[in-house]
């Protein structure tokens, strides 16, 4: 019950943030910045379909301490940007523009290490190398689609993701999990659903910010006239990547102001 109340409170905070209220009062340590950028009309989706609030304490502390943010975007084709008309339209490039505007005065650098078609276990190996060499302040890990298609058993996928989250936490690096691609073709694929459920479960249990890309894109695909998928009906197009970047940006910025709530003897206190 207490956990549920905390979730409700967090959800309302996030919605307040997304509606444009100045949430800086929530956390004095957070950097001075504008509110999360509003979503453009084509990218509107319910907050619950984008991400459940989870704090990013380490990234917030880094932003408060220095005016430079190095973000590592790692993953597969959606990070690389298959389907975009040019690489400047992939999601990390568009995200950099949004964050640079939203986090005024912060020098935002995004390193793109998307390798198309890669399963999480291989990315997890590369992640260690990239973290050792580049020491990012925030990791955006887009994953799941290729594991589902390669039929990697969900429990094996789960073990890979959990062990990676564990060492990233121990190294005080916040990670944002960016979920599976939405495609009507795989809407009824059992493995696809299992991997999505697994990611959702991991993020909730580990307290890690998880962008529910599948749900957000499904909502947009079904509700809007403007297509977000490329001609192959699988990858995103420029607009799709724009929406993906906006969703990630909004979730990241909104959650900079969220602090972990823990039930105490006197009730729920931040």
């Amino acid at each position: 019950m207490a956990r549920k109340c905390a979730r409700l409170l967090l959800a309302s905070l996030s919605i307040a943030a997304s509606l444009g209220f100045d949430a800086r009062a929530q956390d004095a340590a957070a950097p001075k910045s504008d509110e999360p950028p509003p979503l453009s009309a084509q990218c509107q989706a319910p907050a619950s379909d984008i991400a459940a609030p989870e704090p990013l304490p380490n990234f917030a502390a880094v932003l408060a301490a220095k005016k430079k943010a190095r973000i590592l975007a790692i993953g597969s084709s959606s990070t690389f940007g298959v389907g975009a008309t040019s690489r400047s339209r992939n999601y990390p490039s568009q995200l950099r523009e949004i964050l640079a505007k939203a986090l005024k005065g912060v020098d935002v650098e995004i390193i793109n290490r998307g390798i198309s078609g890669e399963v999480a276990a291989t990315t997890a190996d590369r992640l260690r190398t990239e973290v050792a060499l580049n020491r990012p302040d925030l990791v955006l890990w887009q994953l799941g689609t290729n594991d589902a298609l390669s039929r990697v058993p969900p429990e094996q996928f789960e073990a890979t993701v959990r062990s990676t989250i564990a060492w990233l936490k121990a190294d005080k690096i916040d990670v944002v999990l960016v979920g599976l691609q939405y495609t009507p073709k795989l809407a009824r694929d059992k493995n696809y659903e299992e991997i999505r459920d697994t990611l959702f479960k991991i993020s909730a249990q580990e307290g890690v910010l998880y962008i529910r890309r599948y749900d957000a894109m499904r909502f947009i695909s079904q509700a809007r006239a403007a297509p977000v998928l490329a001609q192959d009906d699988f990858h995103l197009n420029d607009l799709g990547y724009r929406c993906m970047a906006e969703h990630v940006a909004q979730a990241v910025i909104a959650n900079l102001f969220v602090r972990r709530f823990r039930p105490t003897s006197s009730g729920l206190l931040p």
Binding site: F80, G117, N146, T183, D232, F234
Partner: peptide
């Protein structure tokens, strides 16, 4: 298999795109 996702596997998509 009418599955465009397979073109992505193993970093193949840049070859096609």
């Amino acid at each position: 298999l009418s599955q465009p996702a397979l073109l992505d596997w193993h970093n193949a998509s840049p070859v096609f795109h």
